[in-house]
Design a protein around this nucleic acid. Sequence first.
DNA 1: AACGCGGGGCC
DNA 2: GGCCCAGCGTT
Length: 340
Amino acid sequence: MLETEVSADLLRWYDVHARSLPWRVPPGGNAADPYRVWLSEVMLQQTTVAAVIPYFERFTTRWPDVQALAAAPEEEVMAAWAGLGYYSRARRLVECARVVAQRGGFPSDEVGLRALPGLGAYTAAAVAAIAFGQRAVVVDANVERVVARLFAIDAPLPAGRAEIREATDRITPALRSGDFAQAMMDLGASICSVRAPQCLICPLSSHCAGKGAAEAYPVKPPKKAKAQRKGIAYWIERDGHVWLVRREAKGMLGGMRALPDNGWSARTDGMGAPPVSAQWLEAGSVSHIFTHVALELDVWAAKVSHAPQGDGEWWPLDRLDEAGLPTLYARAAALALKGE
DNA sequence: AACGCGGGGCC
DNA sequence: GGCCCAGCGTT
């Protein structure tokens, strides 16, 4: 294989077939705004493009630049992130914005970017290449799949990642490496897809060692079984308000607003009592699948005349959509409200 | 190296 | 129901 031919063929394809996305500039265009590239890359960590687009639009409308985001209360950013998942990203997003605003802008090289909170090997390389035109080896799940097929790399992941990275390095061009990275992602998202790859129309098929057997690559390890958990969430209402708490910073849904619960997320389930004595009604049950836990959450509802034990706040029901409840609790709340 | 960490879309 | 996704930080 002639490595330079791979990138040349891919970039020719990208010049015609590049997806148009809100954080992108057209192929070969001017440099993209580092703030928008960084924000999109963080949102896209383990998250699909379709899920990110509306969040990206809302964030950039509300906080158009890194100074604006740095000045925002962390609580507001967490609430705006609600529903997108992996909430430690939102906390690090604010932390990173404040560091960047303080130093007067993003570092323009991969090493400097890698030192920022929330930027790992992938994101630092992506921002360096896409926003700053630096040559960087960008390996995400798309690139991993495309390259494993292109070179027929059958070493199982995660050990095979070293080999995949070396191969990606060999085909990454010195010029337009940001376009190259995005082209690899577009190829992986469309033609070189996880299921039913379309080798017949692939611009890299003439170079591809895995062609025709593409679905055999990359070799992934078996999944672990999900733990099953049960819990109770409490819908506590008074005068058109509901009692909300804030979860601990670490762990499941860390730092997010929530309904009080009986401790379902604790490692050792020490199931606690309701935070207030009341006449409870069963509002129903929510089945929710996390990455490594399957939760069945019963929802108990009551109207009370005084505040429960512990920290919390009365939140107005007519502004509940602004509370920033993660999806689990948004579903539990919908259940309780439907039962009224 | 392995694990914890969301949620939605696809088949 | 299982798989996947523009991964990161911690242990």
